[in-house]
């Protein structure tokens, strides 16, 4: 085994991978949220469609998309493997679990991540597959904004998306600050700042995301 694979397959290396890929996904969320928030201009999706077209056609963005998916796959696979191997480290479980010594969401990252994965499959099927693998949008028959309106006419996807946003919020609430710790970045000067930014990010971003299907369903955005 080379020193690189040996390091990355160690317990610390695998956490580093989770942290680095997690941070890149956080950066993606910021961009994704910013682009999608264009629907709040309430201009019939004009600004949003322009932004979406730029994201879909710019070669730099398309290249970054490949990196995003690679990072996402590493985050999912490494996360599931860590979940499995960590579970095996206590073959006989405790009979009594006492007073909480940590937050429930920090102990449930595997579960929250799995919920997010299920949501992601539904979400990609709704929009990404349509825009990349059909000619509905490129042919001008349909716009991404129109697609959003169509999906969120139905209350079922709206509920699924809101639940997805709640899972995302709790996943980020632990994941944001945890990724810095895994990178070794814990310092009295920066950690309080990282923690407050992380908490703000974990609340605000999913809140904006959740507002989109709700606003569309209620007809606030036309």
């Amino acid at each position: 085994m080379s020193w690189v694979t040996k390091t990355l397959s160690s317990s610390l290396g695998r956490k580093l991978l989770m942290g680095v890929t997690g941070l890149s996904l956080i950066a993606f969320l910021l961009v994704h949220c910013g682009i999608n928030a264009c629907i709040f201009f309430n201009d019939g999706g004009e600004t949003f469609n322009k932004a979406a077209e730029f994201m879909g056609t710019n070669w730099l963005i398309r290249t970054a998309e490949i990196g995003l998916f690679l990072g996402l796959i590493v985050h999912i696979v490494d996360g599931l493997l860590l979940w499995k191997s960590n579970n095996e480290k206590r073959p006989v479980k405790y009979a009594v679990n006492g007073a909480a010594n940590s937050t429930w969401y920090s102990r449930s990252m595997g579960l929250l991540g799995t919920l997010l994965l299920i949501f992601l499959v539904i979400h990609l099927r709704h929009f990404w597959v349509v825009s990349r693998f059909t000619d509905e949008i490129t042919s001008g028959k349909e716009t991404l904004f129109g697609e959003m309106k169509e999906v969120f006419e139905n209350p079922v996807p709206v509920v699924i998306y809101v639940l997805g946003c709640i899972s995302l919020a709790y996943h980020l609430l632990h994941g944001f600050q945890s990724s810095f710790q895994s990178l070794g970045w814990n310092h009295p000067k920066y950690t309080p700042f990282i923690k407050s930014v992380g908490t703000g990010f974990a609340i605000i971003i999913p809140l904006i995301f959740a507002a989109m299907p709700i606003a569309m369903y209620l007809g606030i955005i036309k």
Binding site: L12, K15, K89, N101, S102, S106, Q177, Q181, G184, N186
Partner: peptide, 26 residues
């Protein structure tokens, strides 16, 4: 096992060893 930064260890440590040590180890 690997660390998932829950902080349970720090909370239960009878000697108050800080999580900062884990970051230093990383």
């Amino acid at each position: 096992g690997a660390c998932t930064n829950t902080g349970a260890c720090e909370a239960e440590c009878p000697k108050g060893i800080s999580l900062e040590n884990i970051a230093r180890m990383n």
